[in-house]
Simulated scan of single mutants.
Amino acid sequence: MTSISTSADAVAAPPAIRVRRQTVSGVIALSLFVLVIVALSTMPWWAKTGTIRMVLELCCYIVAAQMWNMLAGYAGLVSVGQQAFIGVAGYAVFVLAQTFGINPFLAIPLALVVPALVAVPCYLLLHRLDGPYFAIGTWVVAEVFRLVASNLGWVNAGAGMSLAVMREYSGFERNVAMSVLCALMILVSIGGSYLFLRSRYGLALIAMRDNPVAASSQGINVGRLRFMIYVAAAVGCGFAGAVYFMAQLRINPPSAFDPMWSNVAIFIVMIGGIGTIEGVLIGALIYFVADRFFGEYGASYFVVLGVMTVLVALYARTGIWGMISKYWDAPWFPIRRHLLVERKDRA
């Protein structure tokens, strides 16, 4: 009896558990992502100035949308006032470059300190609000910033500011700077979000998104994680605003704190698919193409975009990428962990 048991134990080995985090589609997408970063960095040598400006605008939309996606899609913080951080960073670049004489390209990373500092008291003020109250609160904060900027004399109040120091740089130098900044924006926003979501903090964030109470009971500090995401989203939006208005060479309160920034971000995420990086890229491309071809229709165009957003929210809550994923499980940025059981028989 003992020999039979020993023989069975020798044949049947315990299963080996392996965690798979990457997929074939993910490897292909990662390779294409690297090629896109290289292409963006080298635009001055193969693209015209007009093309570079269009690509820069698209990159700014992607960054703003991804930051809103991290807030609403993962942290559960629905904000309609992210234009506050876009505006303050844009103004910070102009003040540093035009008033204090700092190199405008160096002023961009320095300006990102401003939205980070501003986000701290804003979150302390808003974090006790929940749901629609939080969203309304973010919009009120953004309007306060707009009113303050409209009445501050040292930023030229409602007349706005111009970035005259950019005349010191040639057109090619500007194109090189804009191309490098485009690559950095995509690398930081998309690549950074992907790495974050694959980390243990990303696991905690996903758990918090699914059930904050259960996540908290498992030791996750929900409040601290939401604070981190809020500040990071503020800095990301500030990055987009700083680059965008540097390229525009002019800034004023209505454009800097325009609610359209949040509207565009919400549209992109809702159409593409909330809670996914792939959805942001798809939604941004759809919005950019629609804006280029149909933006001239004005109010009618915005009504159509609004109706599309409502229809998606009602009948396709997972967005375009969510519908694709139902029939084709090939994520571009895989963040899920798959447990694979491997049985090995020993003779």
Results as ranks from 00 to 15, higher is better:
T2F: 15
S7M: 14
A10R: 14
V11T: 14
V11C: 11
Q22I: 12
T23C: 07
V27K: 11
L32T: 01
V34C: 13
V38I: 15
L40Y: 12
L40T: 04
S41Q: 02
K48D: 14
T49F: 14
M54F: 14
Y61S: 06
M70V: 03
A72Y: 02
Y74E: 03
G76R: 05
V78L: 11
I86D: 00
I86P: 01
A89K: 01
F94A: 09
V95Q: 01
Q98N: 09
T99M: 06
F105H: 11
L106A: 15
L106G: 12
I108S: 01
I108Y: 08
V113W: 01
V114R: 09
V114H: 07
V120E: 07
L124R: 12
L126P: 06
D130L: 02
G131I: 03
A135L: 09
V140A: 13
V140D: 02
V144E: 00
V144N: 00
L147W: 10
A149D: 05
S150Q: 15
S150L: 10
N156E: 13
A159Y: 14
S162A: 12
E168C: 00
S170K: 11
G171L: 12
S179F: 12
S179E: 08
C182S: 15
C182A: 14
V188P: 07
V188F: 11
Y194A: 05
Y194P: 02
L197N: 05
L203R: 11
L205Y: 05
L205V: 03
I206Y: 06
M208F: 00
D210H: 10
D210M: 09
N211L: 04
P212T: 04
V213F: 07
A215G: 13
S216N: 11
G219T: 08
G219Y: 09
N221V: 09
L225I: 08
F227P: 00
M228T: 10
M228E: 10
I229W: 08
A234Q: 08
V235E: 05
V235L: 07
G236N: 06
G236C: 04
C237W: 04
G238F: 08
G241I: 02
Q248L: 12
S255W: 09
S255G: 08
S262D: 09
V264H: 04
I266Q: 00
I268S: 08
V269P: 07
I271N: 00
I274H: 04
I277H: 00
E278A: 06
V280E: 00
L281D: 07
G283A: 05
A290Y: 05
F293T: 14
F294D: 06
F294M: 15
S300A: 15
Y301Q: 02
F302M: 14
F302P: 03
F302E: 07
V304Y: 12
M308E: 05
T309S: 13
A313W: 11
A313R: 06
T318H: 12
T318R: 14
I320L: 15
G322C: 10
I324C: 11
W328E: 06
P331T: 11
P331D: 12
R337I: 05
R337T: 09
L339Q: 13
E342Q: 09
R343K: 13
D345V: 14
R346G: 13
